Computed example of a mutant assay.
Amino acid sequence: MSSPAFRPDERLVPMRLQRFLARAGVASRRGSEDLMTAGRVCVNGIVTTELGSKVDPACDRVTVDGVPVVLGAGATYIMLNKPAGFITTMRDPHGRPTVAELVPTRRYPGLFPVGRLDLDTTGLLLFTTDGDFGQALLHPSHHVWKTYLALVDGILEDDELEPLRRGIELDDGLCQPARCRLLTNREIRQVYSGRPPAYTTFVEVKIREGRKNQVKRMLSIIHHPVLELHRTQFGSLRLDDLPMGEWRELDSSEVALLKDDAGIS
């Protein structure tokens, strides 16, 4: 995991509670403030919502949703293999299933998803408590590649992908060039159980942007609507054999690779 948020020999002095939570890796500074105002943070057993409150890390006991918080734990980084049917949000006012139900929010109460996957899109979804890290991965200037596997309607020929490779025009502007290829029969057998539906094609699409429904819209424009969509890779991070609906923490080398992908230290 990431290095501790403080030096072992650093003198601990009273600090604002939201700063303490951020340094402990619970959430970003803004996310920590949201946890406080929601009444989820206690200091010495007392719910603390005042943003100017201070704590002494040497003697005060801080909990979030009843879970003790200590300095030095560092930020958390998690990968989920998202199933279909879950909204990419941590709370839904309409009570619909959300990805928050699939990750350890009690253990890491400041988790938030890095970007979004559509309701019916499956695959790799990142979560973190590190706000700067999440924003950097999504910032357009950092151009982090995302890889999708799409099952599309109709028999798609390779030359039909040329508009996507050049940069196709959507209703919200010109897309950056995508990397696209058709899957071989052997690859299809590895990723799809059973016999694919008749008159369908599997295509891999890599993009560096994150517009809403982008891959679906790109393929629809070339008259091959997406039937199923699955994200297999985010930057250097691969989903590999993580079971559907399961999550795991990233190790320090994986976090370092993602930071390198985004050009951040």
Rank of each mutant, 00 (worst) to 15 (best):
A5V: 00
F6M: 00
P8I: 02
E10L: 00
V13Q: 00
M15F: 01
L17K: 02
L17G: 02
R19W: 07
A24N: 05
A27P: 02
R29I: 13
R29G: 15
R30A: 10
E33Y: 02
D34S: 14
L35H: 04
L35W: 02
G39Q: 05
E50W: 09
E50G: 07
S53G: 03
K54C: 08
V55D: 01
V55F: 09
D56M: 10
P57I: 06
R61I: 09
V69Q: 03
V70C: 09
G72Y: 09
G72T: 08
A73F: 10
Y77S: 11
M79W: 10
M79C: 13
I87F: 15
M90K: 14
R91P: 01
D92S: 08
D92R: 10
G95E: 06
G95H: 04
P97N: 08
T98A: 11
A100L: 11
L102N: 09
L102P: 08
V103Y: 15
V103R: 15
V103E: 08
T105G: 14
T105R: 15
Y108A: 14
R116S: 03
L125S: 05
T128P: 10
T129S: 14
D130P: 08
D132S: 10
G134Y: 01
Q135F: 07
L137N: 03
S141F: 00
H142E: 06
W145G: 00
K146P: 07
V152E: 12
V152L: 04
D153R: 15
E160D: 03
L161N: 03
P163S: 04
E169L: 14
D172M: 14
N185F: 11
R186C: 09
R186F: 03
Q190L: 13
V191S: 06
G194W: 13
P196K: 01
P196C: 10
V203C: 12
G210Y: 13
K212F: 15
Q214I: 06
V215I: 12
M218N: 04
H223R: 15
P225Q: 01
V226R: 02
E228S: 10
T232Y: 06
F234L: 01
G235M: 04
L237W: 04
R238E: 05
R238G: 00
L239K: 07
D241H: 13
W247H: 15
E249M: 08
E249D: 05
E249S: 10
L250W: 03
E254F: 09
E254P: 10
A256P: 07
K259Y: 00
A262R: 05
I264Y: 01
